Simulated assay, not measured.
Amino acid sequence: MTVPVHKPVRVLVCDDQALIRAGFATIIDAQPDLEVVGECGDGRAAVDLTRQVHPDVVVMDVRMPVLDGIEATRLLAGAGVPDPVKVLVVTTFNLDEYVYEALRAGASGFLLKDAPPAQLLDGIRTVAAGAALLAPEVTRQLVGRYASRISPPEPVTDDSRLTPRELEVLRLIADGLSNGEIAATLVLSHETVKTYVSRILTKLDLRDRVQAVVYAYRSGLVT
């Protein structure tokens, strides 16, 4: 029997401060399941280098010269981008506007630079696995506060692409419940809830739970 060999997660580090960039790279490269495939100091370089080295995850700063991290994230992971890359935004700025704009641009997660190294590493692994990094209650708070600023809500009380049960699960996701909490609320198994979540994301062409929450608020499925 052949044992499958799992390739390391390929990571690109983008930060305009060389010392921080080198520190992140050292921490990441020390992990057997992670590999730094590139470093750069501005958003434009991040976009160009991503197209050359094809990382699985880009660790992205926000405030940088030439092109900031929000715009770079939009070019790498935004709506309509072919072969989008997963972006983990890591910044010193703990401002709700930055968090929401980063997520809206297509980022899969958001961390502060003063987070412990273990949290950065777990964040990279979480994003690489296709999950959103922010806790559900944080996501709900941000989306509930800022979704209405982006565009007028599109009142929808139903979506023919989803079954009644899937709509119910989507509303609970938007309410900030984890899979375990949804399972307890609906008296379902954890695996069944995971299946429902996967179907919802596929049917609505959404990348992760963060986008599902944004969709639910902007479509009027929750208020």
Results as ranks from 00 to 15, higher is better:
residue 13 V to T: 04
residue 147 A to G: 05
residue 109 G to L: 03
residue 200 I to F: 03
residue 57 V to C: 01
residue 92 T to V: 13
residue 42 D to C: 14
residue 172 L to N: 10
residue 155 P to Y: 05
residue 62 V to F: 09
residue 220 G to K: 11
residue 194 K to V: 12
residue 101 E to N: 11
residue 95 L to W: 12
residue 181 E to P: 05
residue 63 R to M: 13
residue 198 S to V: 04
residue 77 A to P: 01
residue 44 R to K: 14
residue 213 V to R: 08
residue 81 V to W: 10
residue 206 L to F: 01
residue 105 A to I: 08
residue 135 A to P: 11
residue 212 A to G: 10
residue 74 R to C: 02
residue 69 G to W: 00
residue 94 N to A: 15
residue 110 F to C: 02
residue 148 S to F: 06
residue 164 P to Q: 06
residue 107 A to I: 03
residue 5 V to C: 08
residue 182 I to Q: 03
residue 175 D to W: 13
residue 120 L to Q: 00
residue 147 A to D: 08
residue 185 T to L: 09
residue 21 R to I: 00
residue 105 A to T: 10
residue 20 I to V: 14
residue 164 P to C: 09
residue 165 R to P: 03
residue 120 L to R: 00
residue 206 L to A: 02
residue 14 C to N: 06
residue 157 T to G: 03
residue 216 A to R: 01
residue 6 H to F: 15
residue 139 T to E: 14
residue 118 A to M: 07
residue 221 L to W: 10
residue 174 A to N: 08
residue 85 V to S: 09
residue 82 P to M: 02
residue 143 V to H: 09
residue 5 V to D: 07
residue 93 F to Y: 13
residue 174 A to F: 09
residue 208 D to L: 06
residue 122 D to Q: 09
residue 55 P to G: 03
residue 204 L to R: 08
residue 141 Q to A: 05
residue 155 P to V: 11
residue 200 I to Y: 07
residue 128 A to M: 07
residue 98 Y to C: 04
residue 133 L to P: 06
residue 88 L to D: 01
residue 173 I to T: 02
residue 48 D to E: 11
residue 6 H to V: 14
residue 190 H to K: 12
residue 204 L to F: 14
residue 208 D to C: 05
residue 202 T to Q: 12
residue 163 T to P: 04
residue 194 K to M: 08
residue 149 R to L: 10
residue 134 L to S: 04
residue 13 V to S: 02
residue 73 T to N: 07
residue 130 G to Q: 10
residue 118 A to N: 12
residue 191 E to Q: 12
residue 84 P to F: 09
residue 21 R to Y: 00
residue 7 K to F: 13
residue 72 A to I: 02
residue 33 D to R: 09
residue 188 L to C: 06
residue 202 T to S: 11
residue 113 K to V: 15
residue 5 V to G: 07
residue 43 G to R: 10
residue 144 G to T: 02
residue 96 D to V: 06
residue 150 I to F: 14
residue 168 E to Q: 10
residue 98 Y to M: 11
residue 5 V to M: 11
residue 12 L to S: 02
residue 178 S to K: 06
residue 80 G to E: 13
residue 99 V to A: 12
residue 180 G to W: 14
residue 150 I to K: 05
residue 38 G to M: 14
residue 22 A to Q: 07
residue 77 A to S: 15
residue 79 A to I: 13
residue 174 A to E: 12
residue 101 E to V: 04
residue 197 V to E: 07
residue 74 R to G: 01
residue 19 L to D: 14
residue 89 V to N: 03
residue 150 I to M: 09
residue 205 D to F: 15
residue 195 T to R: 15
residue 165 R to D: 11
